[in-house]
Amino acid sequence: MKGALFLVAAIAVAALLLPPFLPWGYADIDWNAVRAAPFSSGHWLGTDSVGRDLLARTLAGTRVTLAVASAAALVALLIGTAWGAIAGWFGGRVDEAMMRVVDGLYALPFMFVVIVLMVVFGRSILLVFLGIGAVEWLTMARVVRGQVLALRHRPFILASEAAGAPTGAILRGHLLPNVAPVAIAYLMLTIPQVVMVESFLSFLGLGVQEPLTSLGILVHDGADDMDIAPLTLLVPGAVLVALVVALNRIGEGLRQRLAR
């Protein structure tokens, strides 16, 4: 887990801080170096089919992917926690009705809903993360609901009521601190999920639009050009996979630590 944390931190720091120090911006076109090889004409990783610096583009794409993923995961956290907490705390029929809705949504082909939304409302970055967040909250809602439901009937909550604690104090003092770690662990597991979804959409041309770029777009462009410049596929692909593996490790590590 330490290695994973270090990797994610390194990728994030590089994506955020490094670009100003590079000789080329991510949209700058170097007409003299189309499909340049690595370490030629000042392009460390070479250039793509129109002469844009691959390193600069990969860092810019990573930044967009991470930003979209964090925002969408936060949307999922907010909706999921609120939905799950209300269902779990009130229980009974409220719970049953709310969870039926979640079950129903689970049965939908997620990605297609997002794609349909993109097609219908046009392609905007706001819609990308709203759309993703709105479908990724389901698992969060289930997890939080399960946790709240289990806590709700724990004797220490009852003992707190017997100790005269008002409902607000029980929620703040007992419920929230016990739900938060689990929600955060699942937030960490949601982020890589969202990274994949965003890249998937961008790959299909339905996500982030030019001149912005993201890892999915880069993989797509690289795939078109892989016979001549394989690095344009391999570099963004490797960054994406490394990011998702490391984020998954962190999330799983957190969850296991909680289970103990």
Binding site: P192, M196, S199, F200, F203, G216, V219, H220, G222, A223, M226, D227, P230, L233, L234, G237, L240, V241, V244, V245, N248, R249
Partner: peptide, 18 residues
Amino acid sequence: ASLAVALPGFVTGPVLAL
């Protein structure tokens, strides 16, 4: 397994083809 779950088809597809 950890690696495989992080390998989306749109990355592995082109890379395998390559």
